[in-house]
């Protein structure tokens, strides 16, 4: 297993993006609510637990989009989102996970 924080620091250094703050951010989903929006302007949210999301979950942002498919469910890589981030759980879901991100505020 690779270390998320080392990977983040290496990649942001490659991209010449200074980090002002890194911290964890959770989105707690609740029964009956399928859509959540988070503002992540001038910052990055890196999804760390895509394996815990129900198949069919979609995360749409200004810079990246993800749909959790069967084949992607086991992936360990980090997905990065920025801008307005919308999380859509599938309509027929019985699972309401905590969605975990590492929040990076850039300099």
């Amino acid at each position: 297993m690779f270390d998320h924080l080392i990977h983040i620091h290496q990649q942001f250094k490659q991209r010449i993006i200074g980090i002002e703050l890194q911290r964890f951010k959770n989105v707690v989903t609740k029964p009956g609510i399928l859509r959540y929006e988070i503002e992540a302007y001038n910052e990055y949210l890196l999804l760390t637990n895509s394996f815990a999301l129900p198949i069919g979950t979609r995360i749409i942002s200004d810079t990246n989009s993800l749909e959790v498919l069967t084949s992607q469910n086991g992936l360990e890589g980090l997905e990065e989102f920025s801008g307005l981030v919308a999380i859509e759980l599938p309509a027929n879901t019985q699972e309401y996970p905590n969605i975990e991100f590492i929040q990076i505020v850039k300099e």
Partner: peptide, 14 residues
């Protein structure tokens, strides 16, 4: 479409 240039250094297109 959304696209970034220079290997994720510059977000330029939505």
């Amino acid at each position: 479409f959304t696209a970034s240039f220079n290997s994720l250094k510059e977000e330029a297109i939505v």
